[in-house]
């Protein structure tokens, strides 16, 4: 730990005090500190930068990104939420809807269903473009509810009385456009089969045709590829003095479980920081006047613990790669624009 109040601490730690958070902003810019060379150095960045996977499965990803500034880490997070494209239902053609769900509500519900289709296979569709195989995916939902003739007379269970009374996302059927069926061996469908869209009663029916297009979360949240994408800074908890006996027990209770552990040393209970990473900084410690000055709470400024939860359309590691590429695309676009302006 850097000494409290030192320049090192000011540069590298966000300090959590009793009455506020200190050293929040990045200050390591050239000219701010004498004796430090803060000019951008690609080699130094590449030497210090690290990515560690903590956990990855089909839908969630947790990884550490170390040695980068908040400005850039936050750009990745923002892009994940709002600028990585996906396919979602954009237009709903209602041929018949006699259910109690109004057309516009139904259309909205259909829009929010994640569609399992790789957006990289498609192009954006502009207002004047015709729908074709490269910019549109078509789905049909055609379902009618009826009485179940086999149902027992005295039954009052709708599941037994009616057929097709629950409309699920699995009832959406892909209708290939143009050469989609031959060219793409992918099977386009909703990510989850069991999303309840509407409930029907005998005689009611829904008959709609849907057009999915490529879009980004900035335009509408239904296009967002993540359920959530967030980061937190690595906690750093330091005991400034040995904490023993009853105080150690109380100290342990002030933090999330697993953060502080108690060891027996020569018959005495001594507190030890076991795993600061688990802490959520509840600030409980500041309610104990005798303990609050014995610990130093901080966060490591350049250590980001990212957590990305995909909606299931693309695996989360692909989403992060795509987000990085989106930021590169932005830089590229402005570099090219700059070039063309300078030519004029």
């Amino acid at each position: 730990m850097a000494a409290p109040g030192s320049v090192e601490e000011m540069r590298n730690r966000v300090v959590l005090g009793e009455f506020g958070v200190r050293n929040v902003h990045t200050t390591d810019f050239p000219g701010n500190y004498s004796g430090y060379n803060d000019a951008w150095d690609k080699q130094r960045f590449e030497k210090n930068f690290k990515v560690d996977m903590i956990h990855m499965d089909e839908s969630t990803l947790e990884f550490d990104m170390v040695g980068i500034d908040a400005a850039i880490a936050n750009a990745f997070r923002r892009i994940l939420l709002a600028e990585v494209p996906t396919m979602a239902v954009e237009k709903v053609f209602v041929y018949n809807n006699t259910s109690i769900v109004q057309d516009e509500i139904l259309a909205h519900r259909l829009g929010l269903i994640p569609i399992c289709a790789d957006p990289r296979l498609f192009e954006y569709k502009s207002e004047e473009d015709e729908c074709d195989e490269i910019n549109t995916l078509q789905f049909q939902l055609k379902i009618k509810c009826s009485r179940n003739p086999q149902a027992a007379r005295e039954s009052s269970d709708p599941n037994e009385l009616y057929i097709n009374h629950k409309v699920y996302s699995k009832h959406m059927e892909w209708v290939p456009l143009g050469s989609q069926a031959d060219n793409m061996n992918a099977n386009f469908r909703p990510v989850h089969d069991d999303i309840l869209i509407a409930q029907l009663r005998p005689g009611q029916e829904i008959d709609v045709l849907m057009h999915c297009v490529k879009g980004i979360g900035k335009d509408h949240a239904k296009f967002s590829p993540v359920a959530t994408a967030s980061y937190r800074l690595l906690p750093e908890i330091t005991l400034l003095q040995p904490v023993e006996g009853e105080a150690a027990e109380r100290l342990k209770k002030c933090f999330s479980s697993g953060v502080i552990e108690i060891e027996e040393i020569k018959g005495k209970k001594v507190a030890r920081v076991a795993n600061a990473r688990l802490d959520t900084f509840s600030r409980e410690i500041f309610r104990h006047d005798d303990l609050k000055n014995l610990v130093h709470l901080a966060r490591v400024r350049d250590h980001y613990i990212f957590s990305v939860e995909s909606t299931g359309i693309l695996p989360p590691d692909v989403l992060v790669s795509e987000a990085i590429k989106v930021l590169m695309g932005k830089c590229q676009r402005f570099l090219e624009e700059l070039k063309s302006i300078q030519k004029k």
Partner: peptide
């Protein structure tokens, strides 16, 4: 812009390797 591009490139390759 070029520096930011370089950062992204490095982050992407490191991330993929990881």
């Amino acid at each position: 812009l070029e520096d930011l591009m370089g950062v992204c490139q490095h982050v992407l390759s490191t991330f993929k390797a990881s």
